[in-house]
Design a protein around this nucleic acid. Sequence first.
DNA 1: ATCAAAATCATACAAATGCGGTATTGATGC
DNA 2: GCATCAATACCGCATTTGTATGATTTTGAT
Lengths: 211, 211
Amino acid sequence: MKTAITVAIVEDKEPIRQSLAILVDGADGFSCQATFETAEAALEYLPSHCVDVVLMDIDLPGMNGIDCVRHLKLLCPGTQFMMCTMYDEDETVFDALKAGANSYLLKRSPPHKLLEAITELYEGGAPMSSTIARKIASSFHINTSAPNELDVLTPREREILDRLSKGYSHKEVANELFVSPTTVRKHIFNIYEKLQVHSKVEAVNKYLGRR
Amino acid sequence: MKTAITVAIVEDKEPIRQSLAILVDGADGFSCQATFETAEAALEYLPSHCVDVVLMDIDLPGMNGIDCVRHLKLLCPGTQFMMCTMYDEDETVFDALKAGANSYLLKRSPPHKLLEAITELYEGGAPMSSTIARKIASSFHINTSAPNELDVLTPREREILDRLSKGYSHKEVANELFVSPTTVRKHIFNIYEKLQVHSKVEAVNKYLGRR
DNA sequence: ATCAAAATCATACAAATGCGGTATTGATGC
DNA sequence: GCATCAATACCGCATTTGTATGATTTTGAT
């Protein structure tokens, strides 16, 4: 028999943790090496006992699962991380991917799917729940209805937004463009209205495109 | 019996086109409505006869499959597009996603997987060959190996900086982290000192690696 | 020539922010 | 034990920023 895929589980809720461990350990070709109730516990043990795959809950007490992955990814470069959670909010999904996760399953997935996914992840895939996969694919679409949100801005407004993106204050922008600070503020206010934001950081994020 | 999933196929190579059509039409719950040898032919017919799913080859004579999707996506908003090709080069994959494809299968996939994928796509998923999925997931990973200025920040400071990067105000960060606004301000002040910046936008730029 | 949009500037107010200092607690390291 | 640092918290001040209202001038298109 070939070597089993080694797995660790980070999940604070006792019953879920137990049933995951039993599921994994009971299946042929899988071996549950460790379980943790908290991100901190995982961070303490795993770096010196790296496993193939970590099933990571996101909503943990103390440090959350995403930050935990961010750290572990550096300490266990060969380990694959599967987020395993209830939530499928956009920000959470993308933050998890940025942190280094290669898989994202919703907890409603049936047990046999989970084992399949672990294998796929181990073999170089990136198994995702279907709604998650769709979110990710959609995030690439160059939107048809709002091709460039920035198109609604006038050239002058773009010019000002560009300065803001470099961290300039109202006054600095005004000096550079040889207009009064109040003019700059008026422009910025108009920019905010058009982009539907309420602060510099939000506007700059839209300007430079997120992700 | 419920309505079959309607499918169209765009593929220039005769034998492949034929076997795909037979596979789809022969399976229960699927109906192959049309096949095309070229992107141009598909663009002429499909807008007035939209189908549920289009299997699209990329390497076509004349217009390629990606540009074809780009056009069709606007004319048939409800149609799902599955790229079905030999290539798995990065640029091709991402261009296809940007054009509006929600699925990307390599031609080496076995027939039953193809039918499964069509169903998954129709039901709101985004089925990908595993190597493709991994490429996509990896494209999100943030460059953590580079010598990072952010290493000088404490975990708490990074946590706060992350919220700032999303456009949160001091108060919003405080509420989310359950600490007082003055504490947040102190953290932010420390962050500015360490990163040698003097405003949110500058700090966020460093955090997100924007030069 | 006329009209609409864009760019300019002013004034005003409330809230948010940047900067400085101080202090307590708990954890870590020497 | 002692020093250091992270995290927490408060006070206060000057400035910046977000929002609102209003007005004038330039410019481009019809």
